[in-house]
Design a binder for these strands. Structure first.
Lengths: 205, 205
DNA sequence: CGAAACCAACCGACCAGTCGGTCGGTTTTG
DNA sequence: CAAAACCGACCGACTGGTCGGTTGGTTTCG
């Protein structure tokens, strides 16, 4: 049970780090603050993690994994590429709606965290863009949309989404992020030439 | 001529700051480095600028103004909203193509520069999104595109562009940013429901 | 000469990471 | 069984280095 306790403490530190990084950003967050926010001391933090960088990186990994899981779970419930895209879009918007802290960390923090993380950040962006691209390719293969440069299209989708979410994080308008869905969906769909299909029952659930 | 000399030195410092900030980011760029890169000393820098923050802010202002001028000059040569959008898109791509340093500063640096600049950054993003929105609204008024949520659309356009440029800055693929134009243009146009018009003579000039 | 421009040396705040030591619980041993 | 030995977890004072900003003196120029 001792190692269980240890694992709990590690999670506590990561949870605290998420809040502190979200508030202050990587550079302005001191390890002392993470320590006190997680109910321990600096020495305690350094017992569990070798460096501040590693805390950040592990937190990023955890966050990315959770978000990707959410997205993939949402998509797994549908077969049609457009329904998958819809589900993924809603899953993202709702997740960030519910966890604004996460949004702040992920959106505002990711790019400017510091030069040492830049390549990792590029990988992360590429990972999400890759998911989008993969499904765009599938849609092209199935003849649902016309062939197009799916790499640029995936980047553009990611960027559009990223910007809308970032804007919401910074300004908090509209009140609920999900409200942008109605405007975002047709925009994205039309951009790749996907004909309109009713969004009907997708709004609830 | 004394104040002229002074102004020249100020510009030199800003030019050097642009290079150093682009390489290192705001936090990792030391005033000493900006000083030596501009052929002066730290004291010299502090004679012309009251703080590192102000250097950054003035540089940001200068950069935004120049970019906005480029965009508006490009648009002024056309009347039709779609031609304006085209011209603006090309102007942006070409400007960053030619000045990768500027792209690095503007793209990678803007978001994560530090909490103290966050509201200013939000303003800057809003400014460019506002330009896009204004012209989307005009296009709607002229009946060229169907009514839509131009605020979200403008954000999405900005975000898409931002992401593509950022990706290029970080990975440098394709070789020339302008090559993304052919993929980006139809994507953006279709997203707002603008019918295809030949891009023909727009590629050169 | 006098003011503007410039410089090198310096100051002090800040903070990641270290280290010697403590504490509560578990295992070993006589 | 109890005392001794041990151990993982934890604490917080301290250090070493960095860097924004200051200052007092020097050069340049009109």
């Amino acid at each position: 049970m001792q190692q269980n306790r240890s694992r709990v403490r590690q999670q506590r530190i990561l949870d605290a780090a998420l809040r502190v990084f979200s508030r202050k950003g990587f550079r302005d967050a001191s390890v002392d603050e993470i320590a006190s926010e997680s109910g321990t001391s600096k020495g305690g933090v350094y017992f569990h993690f070798p460096s501040k960088d590693v805390i950040y990186l592990q937190l990023l990994d955890r966050t990315v994994a959770r978000l990707r899981n959410k997205i993939e779970a949402a998509m797994a419930e549908h077969d049609h590429p457009i329904a998958k895209a819809d589900a993924a879009l809603l899953a993202v918007l709702r997740t960030f709606d519910k966890h604004a802290t996460l949004a702040r960390f992920f959106m505002v923090e990711t790019l400017g965290a510091g030069r040492q993380f830049q390549s990792r950040m590029a990988e992360t962006r590429a990972e999400f863009a890759g998911i989008i691209r993969q499904h765009l390719d599938a849609a092209v293969d199935q003849g649902i949309i016309e062939p197009l440069d799916t790499e640029v299209a995936a980047q553009a989708w990611f960027g559009a989404l990223y910007e809308v979410i970032t804007g919401w994080v910074l300004v908090r308008k509209p009140e609920r992020l999900e409200e942008t869905y109605a405007a975002l969906r047709p925009l994205l769909m039309r951009s790749v030439g996907a004909e309109e299909i009713p969004l009907s029952a997708l709004m609830e659930s």
